[in-house]
């Protein structure tokens, strides 16, 4: 058998040869001085590689590690929940997406419904000779109590009419406050909402629901009117208005232009008003 080269010897030492080869190498090495010497060299390398583990055993180092790991940290670790697996995370994301889609669809549906309602109200006009000014989405309906039944007032009321009201508000942002009053030809003012009896007080507009829709006001109010024309006025506003301020404004305007029979304009910022002229006459 030929002498072993470096590769063969290293394979022999690491066991990377067949059993037959190993037996043949073993026999040869014992009889060949050169191969024996080469084998010794490899043996020495292997010996030198051997680690002296005992030299590295250090009680102080072990204690140091254990000191770092205190019981508090152990408790902290023990309360950690299990890691969320990938499939569960994917399901969660999918569920969130579906939920988002459903909510979005519902929201779009609601928006469309609002838009449809707005379209309908674009066509809304006050009946009879009522003319909404400033905002076509607000209106007032007047009912007169006639022997216990309420009849819609179109153009005439009796001098002692007891009136009830219903208002409509379909504006994009419904108004929050309302005043209802009437002004006759002699600049006499009749208040329905708010109630204004004591001249020493200065009540303000009544609060509304601030919702789109048609709402009935609770009270029925009666005054003694003088025959002639009378303007029924509803003032919708974003902020409460005071009775005395409105009265002063009406008096000023009537004084400046005594010939004006109808109060078509109120210069109140952020307010919409509705004016309907009725005729007060004694029933024939």
């Amino acid at each position: 058998m030929k002498c072993l080269n470096e590769s063969q010897m290293s394979r022999y030492f690491s066991g990377d040869i067949s059993r037959r080869e190993a037996e043949a190498f073993g026999k040869h090495i014992t009889s060949c001085q050169r191969c024996l010497s080469l084998g010794n060299e490899f043996s020495q390398i292997a010996t030198q590689l051997k680690s002296d583990n005992a030299a590295y055993h250090s009680g102080a180092e072990i204690h140091k590690i254990v000191t770092i790991i205190d019981v508090g940290k152990a408790n902290t670790i023990s309360i950690r929940g299990p890691r969320i697996d990938r499939m569960r995370a994917l399901w969660a994301v999918a569920a969130a997406l579906i939920a988002g889609f459903v909510v979005g669809a519902i929201w779009l549906g609601v928006k469309k419904k609002d838009a449809d309602t707005a379209d309908v109200n674009d066509q809304f006009h006050a009946r009879a000779d009522g003319a909404p000014n400033g905002d076509t989405f607000v209106s007032l309906q007047i009912f007169e109590n006639k022997n216990g039944t309420y009849q819609r007032v179109s153009d005439t009321i009796s001098p002692s009419a007891s009136l009830a009201f219903k208002y409509k508000d379909y504006s994009r942002h419904p108004y929050r406050y309302l005043m209802i009053l009437a002004v006759d030809e002699t600049a006499g003012i009749f208040w329905y909402y708010p109630s204004y009896i004591d001249a020493l007080t200065n009540p303000q507009s009544i609060s509304l629901r601030a919702q789109k829709g048609e709402f009935q006001l609770p009270d029925e109010v009666s005054h003694k009117y003088t025959p002639g024309l009378i303007d029924m006025i509803a003032i919708f506003s974003r902020t409460p208005l005071h009775v005395q301020a409105i009265e002063q404004d009406i008096a000023r305007r009537m004084k400046l232009r005594p010939d004006v029979k109808r109060l078509e304009q109120f210069n109140i910022r952020g307010a919409a008003h509705y004016v309907k002229t009725l005729k007060v006459e004694t029933k024939k």
Partner: peptide, 22 residues
């Protein structure tokens, strides 16, 4: 895993020398 530090200490004592030497 149950929070027994003494168990972990035993584990460290058993393998520290091998890990450190290698």
């Amino acid at each position: 895993a149950a929070g027994r530090v003494d168990a972990f200490e035993a584990l460290v004592a058993r393998h520290y020398a091998m890990v450190c030497a290698t």
